[in-house]
Design a protein around this nucleic acid. Structure first.
Lengths: 396, 396
DNA sequence: CGAACTTTCTCCACTGAGTGGACAAAGAAG
DNA sequence: CTTCTTTGTCCACTCAGTGGAGAAAGTTCG
């Protein structure tokens, strides 16, 4: 199949595409209820979209008390590729134009191997998905990387945990390989987009998404739009001081949040505790697996291990300490906690909540939900698909 | 003179009004260079604005090599009232439509006396300015209060330092008294608007303004617009923890920034130092004035007093500590330091800079200016005038 | 001084987006 | 079968906006 190349010709068409994306098949009449246009004008724009092939007819809808309406929907053959590169693993997914996941692969990966090796892997994963019949090609791709990005150009800048990537033209290179438009963003921003599109943040205009994985970062949404900062490093909260004169951090300072709590820090502290004989449970797991991860700590805590529970609580306290400051400053309507460490579940959430509600002023916390993300590991790829669809479904 | 009641009829007219406000008198041709409209359409809109009386003819401009152009300008009889209520003093100013200050009064005031008493004083100050011939009436007024505001309604909410004001309909009451449209905002946000309009932040899209006065707060500008948060308390950074297990704060927690550095905290610490005999310079001033203020500390430091200098440095360190976190999170293009405490000048700025540049990541600080505000005590009233003019110069 | 060029401003015919009403098609309710 | 409701199409009309022609007012230079 030839890939779609059409773009909406004006803001009305863009709006209609987004309504069809977020609301599924719709009749002209229903669309008319959601946009401020006369029926005549609306019909004209829908007809034009049908001509481009972006939208197709989708049979008759049930009657609403009169003549049945003709539904339209986004072309079901459209395909987006969502890529979420983490520090130690990568997610690749195929979605339709309504951003439903049709196929999803996760593989371990070391981002430090550099862009060339990583792209080879990503492209072979995409090829595998294509080979399985889910897509004949891609109409667009979104990709998230674990570091700051110069967004307009789609280029990582000075990413601490992925040295070889600095300045690498990710957008252009991938666009070349895939033969379709590509947008690049920070992985945390994509997680925020995902939770906004299909998760807990659906109705929110101003909210924060804190992703605790190998590292720790924060997605910022202002007025419904992701805020990226002047140089693309907004939300880089891993090196905010959480503990004065605390642990030495790789960045050269002491007491950074990331040095005290993150997937890596938790694994390190758990191993330390096991080796020092402070937890039989953790020591057993260390011996069994030859190493410890956040998941081991979660399991140990679930099994009632006090040391593991303490590690989680202490991490939650540090994280809550930093989040409390952000809440005072930003006054969000919602805080979402996500990332690999969410396996720690309620224990972590409780510790964070306690700290935030205690340290921030009542006006900011009075009606502030602090919740776990809804989408888990798919948040990133859904956000990636959302990113490219936002781009393609806006006037050319 | 009858006050102006007209509003721009469409976005084009609004844009033109804003260009005339920010750029002064302009010819149709010059305006045409700045908006994306044909000369014909532009002429039509300018003519309509002339009909409303918002804009008036302003003679012939110098030739640019051909026929001389007819200038137009905002009606020079338009008057805005800018009010900046602080914790211990109030500024009231009259501006023309180009937001130039025509008259300015500052008076001491205790905001805790409640809205009724404060309004009486503000209205008499406004009357005094009117009586001096600067204005026959006001076309609009902007007012800043030292606490969070529910912006759409113009009502303070749960303001810690001004108890009697909670829920008082400031906007409606003042609009009634003055007989003109009124907009209400937090004082720090107005300072940000002021520095954006006429100060150091003229070219910035994303920046922070930290106001250190009796208390401490932060104005946040995102994409050129003030961000106020979900409940209007965004930027309330006075109670972010700066020193773990630090000083007891009025809010109930320990180590809040405001408890360690602000006009009030500095005066308290200086008095303590004087009484404990740690500074002869400060002790002399305490005896002479019967009390100490931030200005005394500034003077003592300028005179070479080591204790005063230490107080400033320590305060700057705490402030920088908090700002460093905000910089990592928000990645602004500029940080402006303002408020009464800016009298401490370079010593304070140096301490803040040191801390921020040391604690935040290079990508965020690499090209980040941290500067003092340009407008001093007029920032608030200019911002107030800007607030109401933005409102009036937008489509009705 | 007059001719040629520039800039500014006005006028006007034309385009194209968008509206709203009339009407037809299709179904529901009684 | 009649009446009412909803959906979709058609069409005349309005109005924002364009772009070119040309007049008005200046400058420059031979």
């Amino acid at each position: 199949m030839r890939r779609m190349t059409a773009r909406p010709a004006n803001a009305h068409q863009a709006r209609l595409l987004q309504l069809l994306r977020d609301g599924g098949p719709n009749s002209r009449a229903q669309l008319g209820d959601q946009v401020d246009l006369s029926r005549s004008k609306l019909a004209v724009e829908v007809d034009r979209l049908l001509e481009t092939g972006l939208v197709v007819a989708d049979g008759l809808a049930a009657s609403r008390g009169g003549r049945r309406s003709h539904n339209v929907r986004l072309n079901p053959e459209l395909r987006f590729l969502g890529v979420d590169i983490g520090a130690t693993s990568v997610d690749v997914a195929v979605t339709n134009a309504e951003l439903e996941i049709l196929g999803h692969i996760n593989q371990p990966l070391d981002v430090r191997e550099g862009p060339v090796a990583v792209f080879e892997q990503v492209l072979s994963m995409a090829a595998k998905l294509r080979a399985s019949g889910l897509a004949e090609g891609f109409d667009g791709a979104g990709i998230g990387v674990p570091g700051p990005v110069r967004f307009p150009e789609g280029v990582p800048v000075a990413p601490p945990i992925m040295p070889g990537w600095d300045g690498f033209p990710v957008r252009e290179a991938l666009s070349q390989e895939l033969g379709c438009p590509v947008m690049v963003d920070n992985d945390v921003n994509l997680m925020a987009l995902g939770e906004q599109h299909a998760g807990v943040a659906r109705t929110q205009q101003d909210f924060l998404v804190v992703k605790i994985g190998t590292g720790i970062g924060c997605g910022i949404v202002v007025g419904g739009d992701v805020y990226r900062g002047t140089t693309g490093s907004a939300g880089d909260i891993g090196h905010i001081q959480a503990v004065p004169d605390g642990r030495q951090c790789a960045c050269g300072n002491r007491g950074c949040l990331e040095a005290h709590f993150s997937g890596a820090a938790l694994a390190r502290d758990a191993t330390e505790a096991a080796e020092q004989g402070r937890s039989a449970e953790l020591a057993n797991r260390l011996e069994a697996n030859g190493g410890l991860s956040a998941a081991d700590v979660a399991a140990a805590a679930a099994a009632g291990d006090a040391t593991a529970l303490d590690l989680i609580r202490e991490g939650g306290r540090s994280t809550g300490q930093v989040i409390a400051g952000l809440v005072s400053f930003f006054n969000p309507g919602l805080v979402v906690i996500g990332g690999g460490v969410t396996g720690l579940g309620h224990n972590l959430l409780a510790a964070i909540r306690t700290q935030v509600y205690r340290q921030s002023l009542p006006l900011a916390t009075g009606n502030l939900p602090i919740v776990l993300g809804e989408l888990g590991p798919t948040a990133g790829v859904i956000g990636a698909a959302r990113l490219i669809s936002d781009h393609l479904f806006s006037p050319a």
